[in-house]
Design a protein around this nucleic acid. Sequence first.
RNA 1: GGGCUCGUGGUGCAGCCUGGUUAGCACACUGGACUGUCAAUCCAGAGGUCGCGGGUUCGAAUCCCGUCGAGCCCGCCA
Length: 597
Amino acid sequence: MTEPLGGWKRTHTCGELRGTDADRPVTLMGWAFRRRDHGGLIFVDLRDRDGVTQCVVNPAEAGAAHTRAEGVRSEFVLAVRGVVARRPAGTENARLPTGEIEVQVRELRILNEARPLPFPIEDEGDVDELVRLKYRYLDLRRPPLFQNFRLRDAVTRSVRGYLHGQGFIEVETPILTRQTPEGARDFLVPSRLSPGNFYALPQSPQLFKQLLMVAGFERYFQIARCFRDEDFRRDRQPEFTQIDVETAFLDRDDLLPLIEGMIVAVFRDVQGVELATPFPRLTYAEALARFGSDKPDLRFGLELVDLTELFRGGEFQALAQVAGTGGAVKGFRLPGAGGLSRKAADDLTAEAKSLGAKGLVWVKVTAEGLQSPVARFLEPVREVLLRRLGAGPGDLLLLVGDTMPLAAAVLGRLRVELAQRHGLVPADRRALAWIVDFPLFEYNAAEKRWDSMHHPFTAPRDEDVALMESDPGRALAKAYDLVLNGQEIGGGSIRIHQQPIQQKVFELLGIGKAEARAKFGFLLDALEFGAPPMGGIALGLDRLVAVLAGVDSIRDVIAFPKTQKGTDPMTDAPSPVPPVLLRDLGIRVVDVEKGKP
RNA sequence: GGGCUCGUGGUGCAGCCUGGUUAGCACACUGGACUGUCAAUCCAGAGGUCGCGGGUUCGAAUCCCGUCGAGCCCGCCA
């Protein structure tokens, strides 16, 4: 038996009433969170997006309301009218912001009923992802999850405020666009009016933002949806959102502080945290050497130390050989982990091998000496080894000798994992850093050519332009990543705005003039009509919000996310479509069973 | 493309290794009692193709094979 609003107007939210509101007549609306029926008194905890307020229905004072309240079940939609009262002494609830008071109900309306729920709203216990996604609108009713979206809103508002204040204008770019080569796999959309041709959904607004600079917009930003048809992870969804920024007439060292200002504004506005600037900068080479990663987690130490020289020509054959053939020996110290079991140590070795290393040397440092399967090879260098790593009794040392960057990368992974496992990651620390001076190219051995490390429009450093001719592998780029707590949350570059340099890059990438013209002709044309120096960055909004919210999956900050296979259990997307639609598009579906017999 | 974990009433789990009562527990749900609870309490009850298919066996939730789905990871993500 449900009723219409009947002219009732909400006077307060369920989160705002306090002791000072006593005796005030109020009208609240929301969902029945919990109901406690004492036969006489019925307590209903009414929840809206702002909080929970206890409503008490007394049969002696409001008979009709009490009769209705007996039929109320979880998640019924209610409107109550009553009077705010201080709770009787001793019955206050300190866990609720509204716990000083309750609403003594005079009238109650059931605005809508609800079936028993597939999972409880009230506790935050784990529910199967599939069920959560199928009933996502119920999952989103859970207060902690909803708070993530309030936070996300605060972040985008802060970003917009800051960038507008810096003279940026927000511009939308096409969702239906042209497929361009390289990068991730594209999502394609068939064209009815051009049968056999396809739009691609943008992996990022990369080309358009450069064209806006040629257009003279000077400072552009967009909170842009991006699409990539790759395999998904907890921090990767098929569609995600970037804060996309581009400016003209700025070089790297002017752009980075501008972006730092934005991050500082976000942390200040959203969390009241004042970040120190400038953010530390590490070169790509340094990040790799010291942390074994181009997105180092700087919340903790465990820095890698280079031990190549220590083992060169020594008795430890395996490592001596690595040192003698251009490889590197790297190591780090895990303080106080010398008590690791033999099995745990062997598991680490297996893990190092699964990451691609030929092996792992583990060493327990004790007061008596070194404990390790290869201790006798290490004894001759023990003192220097301990000194270089700053190690003492009780520590665990891990060493890998291999080609670079593999040796560092393997230890870099172990570094992060062991730090987490041993509780060495301070939960409240926010470690931001810029990684700069990325190589312009990386060599693609399979195809015998160079690939862009960032993208083909990334400018080389001014001093490295000549290197593109003589030694492309050593040319460094005006590219940069922003790293937060070991996660890449953004990346960008200064773009090439001079046609000849762009041509040279295409040449090295093995993209011929005709091919470049066919694929990026519109951009090359634009570069000939007065392109200003320009650069920008794209920040992963979902990842940034996830870190701020303290959740470890971006699913918890996206309202309607998809599963790891890219499906949506709620809408059942993707789905088959009526044949007539395919006919209009000139599309025939083959190999529906993926070609399997 | 590959590896690992999981799948048991609406939800969360136990049972599986070592095959053999009526598949157990908590929450939710239904009915009843109860005027100061806040995870209300107490009593009673209903609710299960053990993801699906095949095999082994006298007998399968349990062992084997396949398959589907979810998660985490590697590859991939300029």
